[in-house]
């Protein structure tokens, strides 16, 4: 089950840059740490987070093993029109989570 927390305003003025914050449950295993048996645990990270506004990509960030467990990302986007902000996390072991929030622009 997707376990994410998204903070985006429900309404915005046209042209305003709104802040969007997103937090997701994920181990971000670095691929450098030994496990209990002394063997290196395989890397398991989120590699890419993207944001779209009504389907058009507005932000992307490529992550590395240096990003903390349960990754947090914040960024800005210009409120152009009412619709949906789509957030997408993808990474190792076929990880893929998508979340949408609605925003009304006046």
């Amino acid at each position: 089950m997707a376990n994410v927390l998204v903070n985006a305003p429900k309404t915005a003025r046209r042209g305003q840059a709104v802040e969007i914050k997103a937090l997701i449950l994920h181990p971000m295993e670095t691929g450098f740490r030994p496990g209990a048996d002394g063997r290196i645990l395989p890397r398991n990270i989120i590699e890419l987070f993207t944001a779209t506004w009504n389907g058009v990509e507005v932000f992307r960030i490529e992550l590395s093993p240096a990003i903390a467990v349960n990754p947090f990302v914040s960024f800005f986007a210009v409120a152009t029109e009412s619709g949906t902000i789509g957030l997408r996390w993808s990474g190792d072991e076929g990880f893929l989570v998508e979340e949408q929030v609605a925003i009304a622009v006046e």
């Binding site: 376990n3 998204v6 349960n70």
Partner: peptide, 17 residues
């Protein structure tokens, strides 16, 4: 302080479920 940035709130969400 910020409930959307506090990682503990991810677990609260699980607890609510």
């Amino acid at each position: 302080d910020d409930d959307t940035a506090n990682p503990a709130m991810l677990f609260v969400q699980l607890g609510q479920q």
